[in-house]
Computed example of a mutant assay.
Amino acid sequence: MRRSERKQLDPDLGVLTGRLLFAVQDELFDTLARQGHPDLRPQHGAVLAYLDTEGSRATELARHSGQHKQVVGKLIDELETLGYVQRRPDPADRRAKLVVPTALGRDQMTRSDAILAAMDHRHAEAAGAASYTEFKRLLRQITRRQRAWREDEPTGD
């Protein structure tokens, strides 16, 4: 059996999560575009998905999203140009900057939350509420373990 056939019949964790991620992003960003946010791209989610309404530091956004600081900085620049965020001095540390959503950014955040809640509701109805809750619990657990894989590697000491 060819590898591509095997991946279709019995997809591994990477293929399954990739398919899920791209399908969620497609629906989310297509819906956002129809609701007045046509310039956003899935890459912007590395910032927007983790941005607090009160503002977040770029280093926090990079840590939460798993992206390099340089990538997050470029995305922040793009979102600032598009009018979704602005940089402000952090009141807790004037040397640091906070990335703060603008009114346009807050509108996008509210709409994204509603779109994702509708997806959750739709999948919970299809799978059953208890099964969907268990699926999300297991997915969170697997994600935590996978993100921590480097910590579990033997050090060779």
Rank of each mutant, 00 (worst) to 15 (best):
M109I: 14
I76S: 05
R137L: 12
L13P: 01
Q146C: 03
L82R: 06
Y50K: 08
Q141R: 15
D77N: 10
E153M: 15
L116E: 10
H123L: 15
A96F: 01
A117F: 00
T155R: 15
V99S: 01
L75Y: 03
H37V: 10
G105P: 07
A46M: 12
L9A: 15
L75Q: 07
D26V: 11
D120G: 10
R95D: 02
R34C: 06
Q108D: 06
A127E: 08
V100P: 08
R34M: 08
R41C: 02
A62T: 09
D52T: 03
E54G: 10
D52L: 13
S4Q: 13
V15P: 04
R145D: 05
D39W: 04
P91H: 00
R111S: 09
Q70I: 02
R140G: 12
Q35F: 07
R150A: 02
Q141Y: 13
L40A: 10
G36S: 06
L48S: 02
S65N: 10
R137P: 01
R3H: 05
L138Y: 03
T102W: 13
T81L: 11
P91L: 07
T53D: 04
G55N: 01
R111F: 09
R6A: 12
G105D: 04
L32V: 02
R3P: 04
P89H: 11
G14Y: 11
D113M: 14
D52M: 11
R147E: 05
Q67M: 01
V24Y: 10
T102Y: 12
R150E: 03
T53H: 03
A117M: 04
L138P: 00
H121F: 08
R144S: 08
V85P: 01
D113N: 13
A33H: 04
Q146H: 13
V99C: 05
S4A: 13
D26F: 13
D10T: 01
K69H: 09
Q70K: 12
L21E: 12
E78R: 12
A124E: 07
A118E: 15
